[in-house]
Design a protein around this nucleic acid. Structure first.
Length: 303
DNA sequence: GACCAGGTAGCAA
DNA sequence: TTGCTACATGGT
């Protein structure tokens, strides 16, 4: 069974899997009850199932990760060190990124509180199509319920894989979601999002548009283009650009960020989403998305 | 029972 | 362009 250790010396900054994977930036990881090895200082194992790019007919990849004091330990059904590094963005130099935000923003007490409160929080990279669908599902939903909904989608509609004596469920492919009726999706608890998911899946399955194509555009164009998908507006679009498409300048403005703008930086409130988002990017710079995640998580968890 | 949750589509002015 | 409103569903 392929497995390995990635020493903490090999990546910059802290990593706290629990904080990072339950911060509401991804709904595609789950915590496992099974330890990976006997003397683990922490028995918190996280796993995710990833479909290879060629999709149908190829066995999904299982990734299991846990932390030790000096390393990130992984195991998989394939040699997955590069994939783990990519999914968790271990190449990101987070301290330098935070310094860059500091240099751009100047003194930002609220952000400093957020960094201090959650030192192991990182942005991670989600697979594109699952990220798109899960954020379409996220609207008007609490974070915990979004996780539960994505798990149910995978268990009901995704491919299964056996690994190390356990059954894992991959996130459904576009063709699988497109082949599901709107009523079935409603029965899985999607509510009014059911037709959004179905129609977006149909677009991807028919090759009308794939989220990966948006890489070619500069940020604001990509955000316009991604809204061709049904159920995707400015906010969901920004989440997908930030968490799946490497647009680290994207600042999703949700209810939390909206109220933080009112309370802490009203000078950035320019009314429209586009103008306010532009002001926040001017304030925080090329890594504004990192600032947004720290702020979102801090505001949501304090008190 | 209201009210809320990482909003968006559809429509009117 | 901006400003409504309806929209499912489960938890306080």
């Amino acid at each position: 069974m392929p497995s390995g250790r990635i020493s903490r010396d090999q990546f910059h900054g802290n990593l706290d899997l629990q904080t990072t994977l339950e911060s509401g930036q991804t709904f595609l990881w789950k915590r496992s009850d099974n330890r990976m090895y006997e003397d683990a200082p922490s028995d918190d194992v996280w796993y995710s199932t990833v479909l290879p790019a060629d999709g149908e007919g190829t066995e999904p990849t299982i990734i299991r990760v846990t932390e030790t004091s000096d390393a990130l330990v992984w195991e998989s059904n394939v040699d997955a060190e590069w994939l783990v590094t990519s999914l968790l963005r271990l190449d990101d130099d987070v301290p330098t990124i935070i310094d860059t935000i500091r240099d751009t923003a100047g003194g930002e007490p609220l952000l400093e509180e957020a960094y201090d409160a959650h030192p192991g929080l990182r942005v991670v990279r989600s697979p594109q199509f699952p990220c798109l669908i899960s954020f379409i599902c996220s609207q008007q939903m609490q974070v915990g319920r979004i996780h539960a909904m994505q798990t149910k989608l995978a268990r009901t509609l995704g491919d299964t894989v056996e690994f190390n004596g356990q059954t894992y469920h991959a996130f459904p492919r576009a063709d699988q979601l497109a082949a599901t009726t709107e009523d079935e999706l409603r029965n899985l608890g999607l509510g009014y999002r059911a037709p959004y998911v179905k129609r977006t899946a149909e677009m991807v399955a028919a090759d009308d548009l794939h989220p990966g194509e948006l890489h070619q555009y500069e940020y604001e164009t990509a955000r316009d283009e991604i809204q061709q998908f049904v159920g995707v507006g400015n906010k969901v679009g920004d989440c997908v650009l930030l968490y799946a498409l490497d647009f680290l300048e994207a600042v999703p403005i949700d209810t939390w960020i909206r109220s933080a703008v009112e309370d802490y930086f009203p000078e950035c409130d320019h009314g429209s989403y586009t103008a306010t988002s532009r002001a926040l990017r001017d304030r925080w710079g090329a890594y504004a998305g990192y600032a947004q995640l720290f702020l979102f998580h801090y505001l949501r968890k304090r008190e």
